[in-house]
Amino acid sequence: MTEPTPGATAPGLTTGAVARRLGVSPTTLRSWDRRYGLGPTARSPGRHRRWSPADIARVERMCRLTAGGVPPAEAARVALTTRGEDTGLTTADRPAPAATRRGGAGGGLPLGDVRRECRGLARAAVRLDSAELESRLSAAIRDHGLVVAWEEVVVPTLRAVGRKWASSADRYVEVEHLLSWHVSTALRRAPLLLPRAASPAGAPPVVLACAPGEQHALPLEALHAALDERGVPCLMLGAAVPPEALLAAVRRTGPAAVVVWSQARTTAASALARRIDGLRWGAAGARGRPFVLPAGPGWDRRALRGFPRCSGLGDAVGLLRALYAPDGTVRRMPHVQEAGGGPSAPRTRS
């Protein structure tokens, strides 16, 4: 180990600070140092070991590789012999796809029995590693499609962050915000990663809106991306849409369906859903009406009485896609009750 020059400022971070930054335990860092030589290369004047930026970069690469399924010894070899984002792994060297492998908690988050991708995504979120979050989210969407990526990778990770936030006196707020922002970005970039079906010419859209006062629009963004992938035309109005604005949009566009998202019971506007359901347009004898789908955990059975239900994103996409005939005309679907409550919602506190 090198000694700092007299009067020089002690370099780098302590082991505890690095552990918090990377979302691993100090014991893990000491074990990697002892076994593989992935440790700090400098000491302070008080003989305390300090991690330089280069030391931290190496152990960050170690975290990324092990989270992706690379054996620790191989991950350490790569981390010690490469720079930056170059992992040194050829296609043949990389671990097998993790679609069916399961993993436990990632980065101290309570994930339970989930896909291995969740573990890597959680660790990247706890480390506040934007580049890794972007990479992992894009890979999940590209490898599994939007519905599976949302329901089996994104939602379990968001829920784990939300549980950690709720139980830790508002710590991990920055983790949830960063993860949500990257999920939103990945959903908007999905058309660049996946083949998109053509929309029927002249077909009326599906209007997507959050209930008045509802700010949790991320599940609605997932529905928008999944419908777009299947060629269903959409009109996204986003968060907290005032009642008269939503009614005006429905009157102006004559949509095939209106999805009203509510995350909490306090925003589930059943009176608004019934007003939308009562709208009619067009000439006498051929009047149109919207198919209204209240979605989200905020809608209880009483509020949903007389409206369709769906158990998750996949069900919502199937139900809305079935409204369109091959020629783009809209089928009139009966309001049949189904089990569930709309596209899967991450229970976060944002």
Rank of each mutant, 00 (worst) to 15 (best):
P233S: 12
G278L: 01
A198S: 15
P191R: 14
V241Y: 12
L192P: 02
W281K: 04
V173Q: 10
T266M: 08
V250W: 02
G254A: 15
R171C: 01
A225Y: 01
L227V: 02
R275S: 09
Q215L: 04
D228N: 09
A249T: 10
Q263M: 10
T267F: 10
R289T: 12
R251T: 07
T267M: 06
G278V: 01
A211E: 08
E176P: 04
V232N: 07
D277K: 08
L178R: 10
A190F: 11
L193F: 10
V173C: 03
R189E: 15
C210V: 03
L272G: 03
A286P: 00
V292L: 11
L218R: 00
L272Q: 11
A201N: 10
P205H: 08
L218D: 00
R274Q: 06
Q263G: 04
L194Q: 10
L218W: 02
A284V: 10
V241F: 12
S270L: 01
S180H: 00
L187D: 03
A286K: 06
Q263A: 12
L194H: 12
L279G: 04
R274V: 01
R289N: 05
A284T: 11
W281E: 04
H182Y: 10
T266C: 03
L237R: 11
A197Y: 05
G238P: 06
G213E: 07
G202E: 13
A198T: 15
S270N: 08
Q215F: 02
A273H: 09
P191D: 15
H182M: 02
R280P: 03
L194N: 10
V258I: 06
A211Q: 08
A256Y: 02
R280A: 09
V292A: 09
A245N: 13
C210Y: 05
L293V: 11
L235N: 07
G213A: 04
S199H: 12
C234A: 03
A222E: 02
P243Q: 13
L179E: 04
H177P: 00
P200D: 07
A271E: 14
P212I: 05
I276R: 04
L223M: 01
R289F: 07
R230G: 11
H224Q: 09
A284E: 15
R289Q: 14
A245R: 13
A225N: 02
A209N: 07
A222W: 00
A257I: 06
P200L: 04
A209Y: 06
P195D: 15
R280H: 13
T253V: 11
L220H: 01
T267S: 12
Q263W: 06
F291A: 01
V206W: 07
A197G: 08
R280Q: 12
P233T: 09
E244G: 04
A284Q: 13
G238L: 12
A269C: 14
H182G: 00
A198F: 08
L247I: 07
P212G: 05
A283C: 02
R252D: 14
W261H: 08
A239G: 06
P255Y: 07
S199E: 15
R280W: 04
L220Y: 01
L179P: 00
V260N: 08
R274A: 09
R171M: 02
G285Q: 09
